[in-house]
Amino acid sequence: MSIDELGFLSNDVTHWIGKHRADNAAWFSFAERLNRLGQSLLHGLSVTTGEGQDSRLLAMLLFTRTLSNFQGAILMAERGMIVEARTLARSCLESTFCLAAMECGKEDFANEFRRATLQSRKARANFILKVPDRLQYTDVESADRLRAYAARLNEYPEDLSSLKFEQLAERVGLADMYLFYRQLSADSAHPSIEALCRYIGDAGNVKWGPNCDSTEIGDTVNIACHFLIGACAYINDIAQNDEFANSLGAHFTEYKELNGVK
Rank of each mutant, 00 (worst) to 15 (best):
A186D: 15
P210T: 01
R145D: 12
Y199H: 15
C197F: 09
R152Q: 13
N154A: 15
N154Y: 00
D176N: 10
A148I: 06
R152F: 02
H226G: 00
F165E: 07
F165C: 08
E194N: 13
V206F: 14
C197Q: 11
Y178Q: 06
E158Q: 14
G173F: 02
A224S: 15
P210C: 03
R152K: 15
L174D: 04
L153E: 09
A203D: 15
G209N: 10
L184F: 13
R152V: 07
A224T: 09
G201I: 05
W208P: 00
G218E: 03
P191W: 03
D213A: 10
S214V: 04
A203G: 02
Y199M: 11
R198G: 15
A186H: 13
L179I: 13
A169P: 03
G218F: 01
F180P: 00
G218S: 05
S185E: 05
E216C: 01
G218P: 05
N205G: 12
G204A: 06
D213W: 06
E194H: 08
L168H: 11
D159H: 11
A151H: 14
D219P: 00
A151M: 12
L196R: 10
F165I: 08
Y181Q: 07
V172F: 07
S188D: 00
F227Q: 07
S188R: 10
E155D: 15
D176V: 09
E166L: 08
Y178P: 00
I200D: 04
D202R: 14
C225T: 05
E166M: 03
P210D: 02
P210I: 00
I200Q: 11
I217R: 10
Y199V: 09
D187K: 02
Y199R: 12
E170W: 00
Q183D: 09
S188C: 10
V206R: 14
L146E: 11
Q167S: 12
V172N: 07
I193H: 04
P191I: 03
A151S: 15
E216N: 10
G209W: 12
S192W: 03
E216W: 08
L146A: 05
R152W: 01
D144R: 10
D219N: 14
A189F: 00
D144L: 12
E170G: 01
K207Q: 14
S192L: 13
T220L: 10
A169G: 06
Y156H: 15
C212E: 11
L184Q: 11
M177T: 03
D202G: 01
I217M: 06
V172Y: 09
S192I: 03
K164M: 09
S214Y: 00
A203Y: 02
L174Y: 06
S192Y: 11
